[in-house]
Write a protein that binds this DNA or RNA. Structure first.
Lengths: 132, 132
DNA sequence: CACTTATATAACCTATCAGTTATGCAAGCT
DNA sequence: AGCTTGCATAACTGATAGGTTATATAAGTG
């Protein structure tokens, strides 16, 4: 939880491409090519983004033949969440509508989350082996 | 919750000075001079940081004579929390220990946190697996 | 071995960032 | 009116971010 650590985590999250990569990885490991596919961007650009995510500790690099598949490392996200939550709780006292606001945000997205979760489950079953 | 919005929020949070300013504002409004006081940095530098926080919507500018006191605006933080929470929930299913980790993070002090995290890392490494 | 695939790295460009000093301006003070 | 306080803005600077193309490396394939 050093400041540097939080710096790197939040900075990594500040880019929409990187957030999309994390979202993709939430449903399982992926190679660089697979991660690059949805973006109108060169492969080296994606490799750079991945490097940023790795430096922040959000993502791990594996090896499988020539592939260097990435997966998620949840710990730094937990730290970032913890930081936000701490202040959120303080502000809850000052701003009573915050809780309601957050609930609202959560319910509007509940369906999306559930969909994603089902997706994850399906893929894991399909793969059969638990790489992680 | 447009991407731009999250970009600006996370980018604003990526700087330790700005996080410190937010922490300070969590205990009430403050003038620019008051906010600048703890930092070895010029007043214009602080004004710039405040501008970043305002563009992210995290902070509000009031007016009181010559003072331009700042207040917190909790909504963007709630959105950022929500984003993190969404992925945290997904990962909870994959990494069962995450919840415990987060609880521990919440209740331990800074130094103990670092120790704990090292411990977790060590355990993970020891478990081995194809990672790394 | 030569070829292909997957990825990383280097060199480069431009824009933005985080800081500086100097200056401007509005509001209160005497 | 003139001085002081609080803050913003402009102009500058060096570093970093985010992209590019070209090239290098490493591993599987025929």
């Amino acid at each position: 939880m050093t400041p540097d650590h939080l710096d790197a985590t939040f900075a990594a999250l500040a880019d929409p491409t990187r957030r999309a990569i994390l979202a993709r990885l939430a449903s399982g490991e992926a190679s660089v090519m697979e991660l690059a596919e949805p973006f109108a961007m060169s492969q080296p650009a994606i490799s750079k983004h991945l490097k940023v995510l790795e430096r922040a500790g959000l993502v791990w690099r594996g090896r499988d033949a020539q592939r260097r598949p990435r997966w998620l490392e949840p710990q730094p996200l937990a730290e970032a969440t913890e930081w936000l939550e701490r202040y959120r709780r303080i502000w809850e006292r000052n701003f009573k509508r915050l809780d309601a606001l957050l609930d609202e945000l959560k319910t509007t997205q509940k369906r999306q989350v559930d969909t994603l979760l089902d997706e994850v489950k399906a893929k894991r079953k399909k793969r059969g082996r638990t790489r992680r």
